[in-house]
């Protein structure tokens, strides 16, 4: 448990960073063999790509690392734990499953897009073409994650044309 809190605290730092860059404050850390292998923060505005979520950014970093280190990508992802401040959305939940990540730990749930139980359960539904499901631990530092999101939505995202990008985040578990 303490281990989960410690890693999540790190993820929270990256969420904070995203907030100061005007992005949705979601941060994550990919832990491999008890080491921080990659981190991610939302980069949607910067990349003009709505799929640049923290998880996707971090996954991409691990892919690059595997190429540089000449490591087998599949084997590396099989030993990764994701710590993310907000429940992964349906897209990221699908990406994590296809990469074979076995464990996802998240903070607060995502009542709009959540793919690990809130809206759909991509983590454990029977989806044979996406590979086996993964385990999910939720509610780690949920309150902190909610606070960051609240801070963000107090000042609307200036890059969105209207307020539709709002993700109303659920309160802590």
């Amino acid at each position: 448990m303490e281990e989960h809190d410690a890693w999540m605290q790190k993820a929270m730092g990256y969420a904070q960073e995203a907030l100061s860059n005007g992005e949705v404050p979601v941060g994550c850390v990919l832990v491999y063999q008890n080491q921080e292998l990659a981190t991610g923060a939302n980069r949607v505005n910067e990349t003009k790509n709505a799929t640049s979520h923290a998880e996707m950014v971090a996954i991409q970093k691990v892919m690059r690392w595997c190429v540089e280190q000449n490591r087998n990508q599949k084997e590396v992802f099989r030993e990764i734990t994701l710590y993310v401040t907000v429940e992964p959305c349906i897209m990221c939940a699908g990406a994590l499953r296809q990469m074979g990540v076995p464990l996802v730990v998240y903070g607060c749930s995502n009542d709009r897009f959540g793919g690990c139980g809130s809206i759909l359960n991509i983590a454990s539904d029977s989806l044979p073409s996406l590979g086996p499901g993964y385990d999910v631990i939720k509610g780690v530092l949920a309150e902190e994650a909610v606070q960051l999101l609240k801070q963000f939505y107090k000042h609307e995202n200036p890059n969105a044309p209207d307020d539709k990008r709002k993700i109303k985040q659920a309160s802590a578990e």
């Binding site: 799929t51 349906i90 897209m91 939940a93 699908g94 296809q98 897009f113 793919g115 073409s129 996406l130």
Partner: peptide, 25 residues
């Protein structure tokens, strides 16, 4: 599209999707 791609299209705010072949999942 699979769940990941469908959500990617939704995040991207597309207004219509046409596809030909259904796929598993």
């Amino acid at each position: 599209p699979c769940p990941m791609c469908s959500m990617a299209l939704l995040h991207s705010r597309v207004s219509r999707v046409f596809y030909s072949q259904p796929r598993r999942d």
